[in-house]
Design a protein around this nucleic acid. Sequence first.
DNA 1: TTTATAACTGACCGATTAGTCATTTAAGGA
DNA 2: TCCTTAAATGACTAATCGGTCAGTTATAAA
Lengths: 231, 231
Amino acid sequence: MQPISPAKESLADDSNSRWQRRKDARPEEILDAALRLFGEKGFSATRMQDVANAAGISKGTLYLYFSNKEAIFYQVVQQRITPQLDQVESMVNASTGSQADLLRQMINGWWLGVACSSLSAIPKIITAEAGNFPELARYFTLNVVTRSRKLFSRVIERGMQRGEFRQYDAETVARLVIAPLVQATIWMHSLKPYDDDAGTQQYLQLHCEFILNSLLQDTPIASRSGGQNLD
Amino acid sequence: MQPISPAKESLADDSNSRWQRRKDARPEEILDAALRLFGEKGFSATRMQDVANAAGISKGTLYLYFSNKEAIFYQVVQQRITPQLDQVESMVNASTGSQADLLRQMINGWWLGVACSSLSAIPKIITAEAGNFPELARYFTLNVVTRSRKLFSRVIERGMQRGEFRQYDAETVARLVIAPLVQATIWMHSLKPYDDDAGTQQYLQLHCEFILNSLLQDTPIASRSGGQNLD
DNA sequence: TTTATAACTGACCGATTAGTCATTTAAGGA
DNA sequence: TCCTTAAATGACTAATCGGTCAGTTATAAA
């Protein structure tokens, strides 16, 4: 026997429900929201309430799906990066053509798969918070950084063994290939809004060109503009 | 002379004072401590109590010298970076010799003056906290990032005008020169402890070499499409 | 030695936030 | 239509932290 009449101002619409049960969709939505906010504000500065708001749920609901804030962080990293690397690895394994083209593919693929995806925030988050989460930092270094670098240096080394590339220390070259890519994604999530940027497209293309200028044996300039000259 | 009063356990040493008045030395010590901690833990995660402990003072004393936490951040950036850039700028202005050598000098100078100094933490801090401190981010972008990039692109452009370098978009090249440097310093303060690193020396040297391989006109074949070489 | 005061301290306060839990409610089945 | 239950809520707690200020002390000058 409620003193209040049950006839509220019901709008006869789904949207008058205060909330819906959507058990399956929640985790992904939470990870998406957290990933975006972590990228914008950093891990420490992101409030659980912010994540909840961005995911369209209450704060309590977060804890139905993740045991704490750090767990969300781990899940984001573990669930979303490994598949990407698997894909690149199979690309490297399947390759039979020129290593220069493969390298170009890897750089462009990294760009599309990381820099232009929701993953682009991760390098910034990890580097920013490594000091506060040593276990995550170690995990990430081992399973993402080192693994990526090995993929690149395998290709570079293969190119050198085939006489396609000049002789250098392959791992150092791999670092030099990766650094501008990572730097660009960190940039995207930090100071880029304050900089009148020219174009990332040209940056990426020139990076490829410069690297291959130095790596390729004296074969002259055919590498410009598209430049696929397999025979 | 020993003081007569044996009231307390006098150790006949200055160190039995609970503290000393050192008004002049405090600000620098605070900035040093803050810079180190910000680099290790990030800005948000660094507690004022941590800074005070690291500086060897009480928390209250911090506020005798800086109005708040953010002010310390600003001071670190403003006081310690601008002089460095002034120095580089005068180097660029005074240069008369080859631009390739100047570029090498700038890269190595940046390395010694930033990466190997206490400033090395700043790129990481700024990129990590840009989202939470838009004003600082804007200030830093304008007064440090853009200014640095202009210094590099001036040198590159001058080299191209003299026919020493091939024709490229100078600003993009400047970005490519700077990116691996910045990335390396961010690396130093984030994941490097978890990575069995080869050598930064080789990284730096190969970076110089790769960049100049592409920039220098040494090979006479090198008439690129569209690049009109003055001779 | 005494005194004046600038330098310094650290307990305290208000605000914030990660995490909890008693309560409410959507939604399917009886 | 009513019941059951698990999905979701949001007020609450305990703990943390930036910032304050009344009190303490080093130090130099009188």
